[in-house]
Design a protein around this nucleic acid. Structure first.
Lengths: 228, 228
DNA sequence: GGGACCGTTCGGTACCCGACGAACCGACGA
DNA sequence: TCGTCGGTTCGTCGGGTACCGAACGGTCCC
C-alpha cells in the first residue's frame, strides 16, 4: 500500500479490470466521487475504496475531500498521457453500438470530444491538420510547434508555460487512428475553445459539439470549413 | 494466453517481477535466449518458457528460432519506448554500487550507453544538447528536428524513413534525468556511431566508450569537446 | 435530534496465477 | 549411435488478492 518501487509493482496498479476501468473513466479529466466510480466499475463501495487508496498511493490519482465526498482525479497530465499510450497498443475496439441511443452517442464521440484536457475525435484531428498545413506545427521532424506556431499561440494570448510538461505532444486517437495535438498547447487551445463558447459539452460526458460561433472562429483562425 | 483485449490484461503482462525483469533486460536491444533470461530472472527454465509465451502472445516480444535456441527480443521500438516511459515514473533508483567492480561498471553506464537503439547517458545528453545548440533540434515547441536538422541528417547520408515510427522523440534518462534524442533519428545516429567505430561497446553489456576517432568526430561534427 | 447518505475498516471466502520438478522432444556434437 | 543441452508440456502446490457484507463514523438535511 505504498509507492511502487519497481516496474512490476507499478504495472500491477493497472493490471486489474476494476482499477483500469476507474482510470479510464477519469481520462475525461473530471473529478469523480468514490461512489460514482464504484457504480461505474460495478463493484461495492468498500471495494472501490481500497482500489482508490492503492491508486492514490501509487501516484496515479490525486484526491480532494469536500464534506462527506471524496473527489478523485488523475494526478497530472503525464498520467493521462501514459494511459493514452497504453490504450493505443490495444487492438482497435470493435464498436458495437447497441441501439439508436448508443449509436448517436458513439457518433457524437467520434465527431468531437475531449481527451483529458485537449480536443480529440475528428475535431481534434482537423485542428491538428490545419495547424500543420499553416506551418504552425511540424510533423516532419517530430511533433513540435514551429517558430511561427509559438508566435501564433502568443498572439492568441495563450501562455505555454507548463513547467516540465511538454509543449506539444502527439496523442493517438483511437477512433481516427491518427495523431492529434496534446501537451500544454493542446490543453490551452481546448480551454480557449470552451471558454469562448466555440465548442460546448454535450450533456455531462466527454463529447463536444461545435457551436455556430465556433464554426466561424475555426474558419477565421485556421481556415477550417467543413467541420460537422 | 491470447492477445490482450483490455488495458488491465495488457498491464498484467508487466505486473510480474519476473516478466518485468525480462523486458527490462531486453531493453538493451539485443536478442536473448530463453535460458539466458531464465538465469537473469532467477527462475526455472520451464517458468521462463511460460512467461515468454505470454509476452510474445501479448505482442511485447518477438521470437526467432535458430536450431535448438529460441531467441527473443522486444517486438519493436514502440515497446522499448513504452518501457522507458513507465520506468521514468518510478522513483529514481538509489544506486548502490557494492564494491569497486560494480562502481566502475555503474560509472561507465552513466558516461555512455545504448538505450535500446539510441545513445543515452552523459554521451546521449551531450549529443542532444549539441544538436539543440546548433539549431538542428527544437526543444522549445516540443521535440523535433528542425528544417536544418532534417537537412543535416540527409547530408550525413542518414535516411529517416522509419515507417510510422516518429522521427524524433524525447527519452528521459534515468541517470541524467534529462531528455535525449530517441526515435528514428536517434537510432540512425547511434548506428552510425557504432559502425564508424566512434563509440565501442564495453564488453557485452550496454555501456559504450568514445574512441579517439569518435572524440575527433564529435568535435568536428557537433563541436562537442569535453566528452569523457 | 432523527434519518438518509457517503465513505471506511474489518473479517472471511474464493479464485487466480506464478513457481517448481518430472518427463519428453529435438538439435547438436563426439 | 549415444550423451548433452536447450526448450516445452503437464500436474501440483502455495501465496497473494479482489470481492463482499456487516458494522461504524462523519456529513448533510429535514
Amino acid at each position: 500500500m505504498t509507492a511502487p518501487s519497481s516496474l512490476a509493482q507499478f504495472a500491477a496498479l493497472l493490471a486489474d479490470e476494476t482499477r483500469a476501468a476507474m482510470c479510464l473513466a477519469l481520462l475525461d479529466g473530471r473529478a469523480w466521487t468514490a461512489g460514482e466510480l464504484a457504480r461505474h466499475a460495478g463493484v461495492a463501495r468498500s471495494t472501490a475504496t481500497q482500489h482508490l487508496h492503492r491508486l492514490t498511493a501509487g501516484g496515479l490519482l490525486a484526491e480532494e475531500r469536500q464534506g462527506r465526498h471524496r473527489y478523485v482525479r488523475l494526478a497530472d497530465a503525464s498520467v493521462a498521457a501514459l494511459l493514452e499510450d497504453l490504450s493505443a497498443r490495444l487492438p482497435p475496439q470493435v464498436a458495437r453500438p447497441a441501439g439508436l441511443r448508443a449509436a448517436t452517442a458513439s457518433a457524437a464521440l467520434a465527431r468531437g470530444r475531449t481527451c483529458y484536457d485537449h480536443l480529440a475525435g475528428r475535431l481534434g484531428v482537423a485542428v491538428t491538420d490545419a495547424l500543420t498545413a499553416r506551418g504552425l506545427l511540424d510533423q516532419a521532424g517530430g511533433f513540435a510547434l514551429t517558430q511561427a506556431g509559438l508566435a501564433w499561440m502568443a498572439a492568441q494570448g495563450l501562455d505555454l508555460d507548463g513547467g516540465k510538461r511538454p509543449v506539444a505532444r502527439a496523442c493517438l486517437d483511437w477512433t481516427e487512428r491518427r495523431p492529434h495535438l496534446a501537451g500544454v498547447a493542446g490543453a490551452r487551445l481546448c480551454e480557449r475553445f470552451l471558454t469562448r463558447g466555440w465548442v460546448a459539452r454535450i450533456g455531462s460526458g466527454r463529447a463536444v459539439r461545435v457551436t455556430p460561433a465556433g464554426r466561424a472562429a475555426l474558419a477565421d483562425l485556421l481556415g477550417i470549413d467543413g467541420v460537422d
